[in-house]
Design a protein around this nucleic acid. Sequence first.
DNA 1: ACGATTTGACCCGT
DNA 2: ACGGGTCAAATCGT
Length: 295
Amino acid sequence: MAEMPSRKTLLLAELSQLNVLAKKLCALTREIEMCPTIADEIIFSVNKVIRMAQSMGSVEAEQLLSNGRTQHVRILDHASEPNQRMSVKRSTLPSWTSHVRVSDGMAEGTPDDGCSWRKYGQKEILGAKYPRAYYRCTHSKSHGCPAKKQVQRSAKNPSTLDIIYRGAHTCSRQPQQTACLTRQPPQSSVDHLSTCEQSDSQNTLEVATAKSDSEIQNLNSSFTFLSQEEGIKAEQDSLCFSPSFMSPSTSSPELMEFISSMTFTAESHEMDLDFMLGSGEMDPNVSFDTSIFFV
DNA sequence: ACGATTTGACCCGT
DNA sequence: ACGGGTCAAATCGT
């Protein structure tokens, strides 16, 4: 029987992961103006908190964790809801939302995010002023690419498109797909998550750990991003925000949200980031309160 | 001819 | 039963 890790240990583990993620973010955004500075600040800040945590007692760590729950990082008690049902048929792909401002001249169609999409449906949504269009990756059949997106004009701001991305491209290995997304190789962050899960299967602190094998596989193979050129190009095409050019490359939904939040801060307050939890399949144990970044 | 789009029908979860 | 998501035949554009 392994000894239960203390709150302090878990806090330190979490902070360490934050540190790693921030470093990865820093490396990924090295060329993008401002981002490296922000990432460096995050690393500095996280290191500072790690040192503070190391010097505090378990009770203090407990308090810090509690504050984190209510104020910034809500850590859901997964074990308390063992019977939460997972959707079987609906998409289990992770999703994220972006709001894209379009100019009047391009009222029709969606901005080019560097990937080729094929429209497969459109629906009038109850109570919605504008229909919702459904797209899937052009290579969904030929390469089994699971990437999809939903596009709907915002009722509040008709000049804004709400785009929900689901799943990530896995088609980028094709030589002709250089403009599209690059797949991340399996890497340590998933291992780390697995480790967390093993270390604490009780209803204590869990960090996106309660994932099925398929979900982990999903994380492992998913999130990809545009080449920087494409990303910058997209930005210049009046995109407020495009998740496509940001890398959720750590294969972590939390980081994806984290990165998205930062982009929000840096670029536009129109972006409304919700890390969509389609039908609860994702059931992440961590949900970020993005207000932490808006101070 | 082939790929993309349109659109009504169907399926599934709530 | 209803609404959202997907399918697939018809149509369109190149």
